[in-house]
Design a binder for these strands. Structure first.
Lengths: 233, 233
DNA sequence: GCACACACGTGAATC
DNA sequence: TGATTCACGTGTGTG
């Protein structure tokens, strides 16, 4: 260790001398201590192997990312990750762009609540939507549910088609950490779902039909974009 | 070095003894060689600092990815990357899903060729589209161009709106590496562009209008989803 | 004590 | 050659 420090700029551990001298000391004394040394060596082995496995896991994921994004075959890790970031942003923007302007009720009752874009900075938005049969009573229920939450509604839209409607709310949040914003998302989702549940209950009471679960399919037209994303429920 | 190998399972370089002994030898001899040692130390320093910077770059990108994808705050690197992979796939699927079924010609002449999904396994698809004015002659040109390529067309669609049309081809490929599939994409793109160019040439010959570049804007309606993704050209 | 994850410095390869 | 990237083993902290 001291030897090592004779060269300035070298810290103790840079040559692994500590470990080395430990082993030496252990080896000097007979038998019993040797057990300790063997054990230590085994531990060291396990350690390095575990670390190798960890690296393989990470690099494996990086490799599949390379396969997922064309043109990144020969990039180094950092450049690859930068490209991944761009891709995620691009795709996210494309989705919102292609989704925007096509606010059309689908034939599936659903509540979607998701955090929308740019939590790069401290501000963020929550986009909440509820799609179901159109009932004027529902509107006030929704309004109440949303306004009961300590949130600021930035934008609200409604679209109807036939007997169906979809309501969209964009809600502003700021200065919330990861967990805070997630709990906001959850509370919004809960609020809208309770509105939907209440509606179902009243429907059921008026015995128009019985529900099998909470989701209901109404054949209006084949909806293509309302599937996937189970986590949005 | 020999000392090091006395412990089996330890390779030469595991303690950095090579480097160490190099420095020792250098120090034994006076003055001139000391310069060499100093230089070596400096180089080592630069090296470790560069490596530190590299790590910071990578970790920085990982951090922004964390910020970009909610719920990954406390994940370890591997889990984060796995989540990133899921996100990219999800978003990619959402885009194609939300795009599909809305095959409508836009007001911009364009050729899009992109690799579509799942090159996880060895098979993949290429989705190629060409959007331009509708001319019946074009159809056979396109057909010829596509069939001239050593590819299997899995699906083909055409949609028209007013004077505009868009053709979509889904082409199957398999057992191609990154570069191979990329060159296929390029050749498809080239083929479709040549069709478009030929069309332009004949149009120009018939002197309906002069082109400024190859792109042409026709006001039909404001197209929203044909923007971005310059790399698709 | 053990398992896991991370940062670090180093050796080697590539350009 | 120097600069840069990667894999590796190790030290260290946390649960």
């Amino acid at each position: 260790m001291d030897v090592c420090n004779n060269f300035d700029g070298f810290s103790d551990n840079c040559f692994g001398f500590q470990e080395f001298s430990k082993e030496v000391k252990a080896l000097v004394k007979p038998e019993r201590k040797l057990y300790g040394a063997e054990k230590a060596l085994l531990a060291l082995r396990n350690h390095s192997e575990a670390e190798r496995r960890r690296r393989e896991r990470i690099n494996g994921h990086l490799a599949t990312l390379r396969g997922l994004i064309p043109g990144t075959a020969k990039m180094d890790k950092a450049a690859l990750l930068a490209e991944v970031i761009n891709r995620v942003k691009e795709l996210r923007d494309r989705v919102t762009e292609v989704t925007r302007g096509t606010l059309v009720p689908t034939d599936i009752d659903e509540v979607k609540v998701e955090q929308e874009g740019k939590n790069d900075e401290n501000s963020f938005f929550i986009r909440a939507s509820l799609c179901c049969d159109f009932k004027t009573e529902l509107l006030s229920d929704i309004r109440e549910a949303i306004e009961a939450l300590p949130l600021k509604t930035v934008r609200a839209e409604i679209a109807t088609l036939g007997t169906r409607m979809v309501n969209v709310f964009v809600i502003a949040g700021c200065n919330a950490d990861e967990e805070g914003s997630q709990s906001l998302v959850d509370s919004v989702r809960k609020a809208l779902r309770s509105v939907l549940d209440k509606f179902y209950a009243s429907e059921e009471f008026s015995s128009r039909n019985t529900m099998s679960g909470k989701r209901r399919r109404v054949s209006l037209f084949s909806s293509s974009n309302s599937s996937s994303y189970g986590d949005l429920w």
